[in-house]
């Protein structure tokens, strides 16, 4: 059974927002909301500044607080790719999952249910990559099975330096950001 994850090379990402537009188009995300977004972080002291641009979304955590707090089982870990998914017809819109997510990855869809990135599960089932990965013009995003040591994502994590967001929150995210330059 695959355990899908994503690896994003921050040294290649230019923050063009193509991933955001692709997601909104592919998933018909309503106006004013987004399932993925661009975060830009500038650190240091002038003139020694560094900038990191990240394409962010639901981290598909291995230890997902949104799933544990859901009172109806609408938020769940799916058999397909062990992805954190939402069953719209089970969601009562209590917003506990929104409060439980340390990444602010969820929002309430105008139709009332909690919504977030699905890794484009409908595309994965057709053997395609998520829309954001497919359209990235700098090819900074990689998608695959983290449990398969021969997958591209596993090999990248093996050979490059990486980090996850807020590891101290204990959620064990499945989106990794490469932080060094490609060899």
């Amino acid at each position: 059974m695959a355990r899908f994850g994503m690896v994003i090379d921050t040294s290649k990402c230019v923050g063009c927002l193509d991933c955001v537009v692709a997601c909104k188009t592919e998933n018909d995300v309503p106006d004013g909301f987004c399932r993925d977004w661009i975060a830009t972080e500038v650190t240091g002291t002038f003139p020694s500044l560094s900038m990191e641009i990240r394409s962010e979304r639901c981290n598909m955590c291995d230890n997902p607080p949104c799933v544990y707090c859901c009172p109806t089982g609408a938020s769940h870990i799916s058999d397909f790719g062990k992805l954190v998914q939402i069953t719209e017809e089970k969601c009562i819109g209590c917003k506990a999952c929104l409060a439980a997510c340390p990444y602010g990855a969820r929002f309430t869809h105008p139709d009332g249910y909690a919504d977030k990135c699905t890794f484009c599960e409908h595309r994965l089932r057709e053997g395609k990559d998520p829309a954001c990965v497919s359209v990235c013009p700098t090819h900074c995003m990689y998608f695959g099975d983290l449990d398969d040591p021969n997958s591209e994502v596993s090999r990248l994590l093996e050979s490059r330096k990486s980090k996850t967001l807020l590891p101290e929150a204990g959620t064990r995210p499945r989106i990794y950001f490469l932080t060094d330059k490609p060899k």
Binding site: W37, V42, T43, E56
Partner: peptide
């Protein structure tokens, strides 16, 4: 300094 901007 740490400056964080997001489109979220």
């Amino acid at each position: 300094m740490r400056e964080y901007t997001t489109t979220n």
